[in-house]
């Protein structure tokens, strides 16, 4: 049975701006299904984004949405959650927005373990601004600003998030469409900071500079590099060379920031 996406979309907004074959649309569908599964109410949910291709996503969904300054989505989302702790707060952004320009806000939102869900669409590049390399562009890959190949080592976003203190960290790809909504739903149910990294394809800014002949090539690559974390336990380091782990990579219980802050308020009021 066809899923009714229209009930969660703002009327008249489609077709969206993303390029032919861009996986952001697949992730948006997964996000909508996850929010439907978790029964999120439109009036009690805020979706926050910064600047970039992925950050255009909240413009299409019919929830409370906030399109903010480049990289500052996590900071705005923290403000919303602090002011209205009863709201479900989500952040959507790309790799450039999340871990380069907004890297500072990203790690501190993780450190505080504030109850929000951050869906980070990692397409390895700054797509919207003209294909500049990001901290997630693979070594040797070409971007508009690295025409001879990128010399910079990459960020492992999942490890960065775990190291910074996020209590739920998961990773999947745009190829694994059914896993996207399962992991986002698990992140929404988790009390604390949930980071869901979705590896994505950018055929326009990344693919055509890096010898991907078509969108299908990029999708097949995502399929090939992904290894479920349970399967990886039985694999040798040589077999895992060049692969990325998918699934729930880290989950723990730790005090949530808004609850901790309520205790500060109670102490200050002499309770």
């Amino acid at each position: 049975m066809a899923f009714d996406y229209e009930q969660y979309l703002r009327p008249g907004k489609l077709p969206h701006i993303w390029c032919p074959g861009c996986g952001h649309g697949i992730v948006m569908k997964g996000l909508i299904r996850a929010m439907d599964t978790c029964g999120l109410e439109k009036n009690n949910t805020a979706i926050v984004s910064g600047i970039g291709c992925a950050s255009r996503l909240p413009g299409y969904v019919d929830f409370n949405t906030l399109h903010t300054a480049h990289g500052r989505a996590a900071a705005f989302a923290t403000g919303i959650k602090m002011a209205k702790p009863e709201m479900d707060v989500l952040v959507v952004g790309g790799d450039g927005d999340g871990v380069a320009i907004g890297g500072n806000h990203f790690i501190h939102a993780c450190r505080r373990n504030i109850d929000m869900t951050y869906v980070l669409l990692n397409n390895y590049i700054y797509g919207m601004t003209g294909g500049q390399f990001s901290p997630c562009t693979p070594v040797g890959a070409k971007a508009s600003t690295t025409p001879y190949g990128n010399p910079d080592p990459t960020f492992d976003i999942a490890k960065l998030a775990i190291g910074a203190g996020a209590t739920f960290v998961a990773r999947t790809t745009a190829f694994h469409a059914t896993q996207i909504d399962k992991l986002i739903a698990a992140g929404l149910r988790h009390k604390g900071m949930a980071i869901i990294e979705v590896l994505d394809d950018c055929p326009t800014a990344y693919g055509r500079r890096n010898k991907f002949r078509s969108v299908i090539d990029m999708m097949k690559r995502l399929k090939e590099i992904a290894v479920p974390i349970k399967a990886a336990a039985h694999m040798t380091p040589e077999q895992l060379e060049g692969k990325v782990l998918t699934g729930i990579l880290h989950q723990e219980e730790r005090p949530e920031y808004c609850e901790q802050y309520q205790q500060v308020i109670a102490s200050a009021q002499g309770d």
Binding site: M1, L14, P15, H16, W18, C22, H24, I26, K29, A177
Partner: peptide, 13 residues
């Protein structure tokens, strides 16, 4: 097809 279409263009009834 419906799951993977990035453009909300395919519907299977």
């Amino acid at each position: 097809c419906e799951l993977r279409c990035p453009d909300f263009a395919v519907k299977v009834h």
